Amino acid sequence: MTAKPDARHYRALFLSDIHLGTRGCQAHLLLDFLRFNDAEVIYLVGDIVDGWRLRRSWHWPQLHNDVVQKLLRKARKGARVVYVPGNHDEFLRNYFGTHFGGVEVMETAVHETADGRRLLIIHGDEFDVVVRHAKWLAFFGDWAYVTALSLNTWFNLVRRKLGFRYWSLSAWAKLKVKNAVNFIGAFEDALIAESKRCGTDGVVCGHIHHAVIRKEDGHVYMNTGDWVESCTAIAEGHDGSFEIIRWADLRKDVVPAEDAEDGEETSQPVAA
């Protein structure tokens, strides 16, 4: 059995692209992450709930409800929780400036780091030309992505039976496609340009499911990744330093617990 990780407290945590309401959401790993990691402020950087998928077919297991309850519990215990909606949870864009259970819903946010830098917090779909100008194509791409994730689930089920750790077939395929790599580069450049236009020192975003911290011309670009493939988050330490937390790698032996009733006990480590 793998030992439990040490509990960590950060100045800020940034999460995005959880996609609650889809079968690909790795809610068990996110719950495990939230059990051991806390922060003064938690930014939910869009696509937390997948309204696109829920409109087509309802999928909301207890684990997904447990994630929501865990985040609300952190807000009740004093953490500031800021929700910046994305394109998959765009229904919440009708509620900018409101609070739900202590969670602030905002169009964008500006986070001030411990060392005085100002970071623009934005989901990023506004800079995806497919989402903006060809929504039908975005829906088709979403269907293709979900299909790839279904294959990924079966692929990793076989890997786990053979004693291998989780590995994202869909993420590997995406990064092998030249056009996808070019799109990621163009997306990053567009977000850095938006940060400069807004007069901030950098940007934290999501949307493209590719976690990275990149510096360019004195500006920093940070993408939180996702909780479907990579299970990553961005964290700011109390000294103003930033890191990518790759929870699937740190807790590769955590699998969903069967018939769990309590949100605190919905994942369990197993022998490698």
Score class of each variant (00 low, 15 high):
G78Y: 01
A114Y: 05
P85M: 14
G86N: 02
L92W: 15
E107K: 09
Q69I: 02
F96W: 13
L92Q: 11
H99V: 14
F96D: 10
G116I: 03
T98Q: 15
A75Y: 02
T108F: 09
A79M: 07
L72I: 05
T113I: 07
G97V: 11
R93W: 04
L92C: 13
R76N: 12
M106R: 15
P85N: 14
N87W: 01
L72Y: 04
D115P: 00
K70S: 15
F100P: 05
Q69R: 11
K74C: 08
R73I: 01
T108I: 10
A79S: 15
V84W: 00
E107D: 12
V81N: 07
L120Q: 04
V110L: 04
L72E: 06
T108A: 13
N87C: 04
P85T: 12
G116A: 09
R118V: 00
F91Y: 11
G101M: 01
T113W: 04
N94Q: 13
Y95G: 01
L119S: 04
K74Y: 03
K77F: 06
G101I: 04
N94A: 14
V81A: 09
A109R: 02
F100Y: 12
G116V: 02
G102Q: 00
G102P: 07
G86Y: 01
G86D: 02
H99N: 13
L120H: 01
T108G: 05
A109N: 06
Y95S: 12
R93I: 00
E90L: 10
A114G: 07
A75I: 05
A109V: 10
D89W: 01
K70A: 15
V105M: 06
A114L: 07
V105Y: 07
N94G: 09
H88Q: 05
R76Q: 14
E112R: 13
R76W: 09
E90W: 06
A75H: 03
D89I: 00
R93G: 12
E90D: 12
G78E: 05
L71C: 05
R73S: 14
R73V: 01
L119N: 01
Y83W: 14
A109T: 06
D115R: 06
L119T: 02
V82Y: 05
G86K: 00
D89E: 06
R93S: 14
V82F: 08
A79C: 11
R76C: 10
G97P: 06
V105H: 05
H88D: 05
R118W: 00
L72H: 05
E112D: 08
G102D: 04
T108P: 01
V82K: 07
R117V: 04
R118K: 12
M106K: 15
N94Y: 11
L72P: 07
G97I: 12
H99P: 00
L72Q: 09
E107I: 00
K70T: 15
T98W: 09
E90P: 00
V110W: 02
V110A: 03
D115K: 04
K74R: 09
L119C: 06
N94M: 11
T113M: 09
L71G: 03
A114V: 10
L120K: 02
H99Q: 15
T108N: 08
R73W: 10
Y83D: 03
G116T: 03
